[in-house]
Design a protein around this nucleic acid. Structure first.
Length: 110
DNA sequence: GCACTGACGAGCG
DNA sequence: TCGCTCGCCAGTG
């Protein structure tokens, strides 16, 4: 609170909330957009609190391999997969099908 | 106050 | 080409 570090988390939430419908991005992409390309782990950590926020579609954020690494944090169910499939994103073996086509780069779009 | 962990990513062997 | 290790940054024990 009141710390600049908090701004980092807020920035992650804002970027994630700007992800278009049916699109996905990676932690590293967001981290790079924020200026800390090597802080992808922090982005994932920030998403931990983003799940509690409806304004932040954390299910649209996956790792650079398109793997739903965070699905385990979505109540321990396949909710994350279902949410993505509901948006037109096909999931195969916990991985985004045609990830490259659904990839949304904040640094490029924003 | 120190050390380990963690929804990752890139580099090196 | 595949697998392993190191780096980053903040939070928690």
């Amino acid at each position: 609170m009141k710390t600049d570090k908090q701004n980092f988390f807020e920035s992650v939430y804002q970027v994630a909330s700007q992800i278009p419908y049916g699109m996905v991005t990676s932690y590293g992409a967001i981290a790079r957009y924020l200026g800390s390309a090597r802080s992808a782990r922090m982005v994932g950590y920030a998403m931990n609190g983003a799940v509690a926020r409806e304004d932040v579609p954390a299910h649209r954020v996956v790792n650079r391999k398109g793997l739903l690494t965070g699905k385990n944090h979505f109540g321990g169910s396949k909710l994350m997969q279902q949410l993505l499939e509901n948006e037109g994103v096909r999931i195969k073996d916990d991985q985004v099908v045609d990830f490259d086509s659904h990839f949304w780069d904040p640094a490029r779009e924003l």
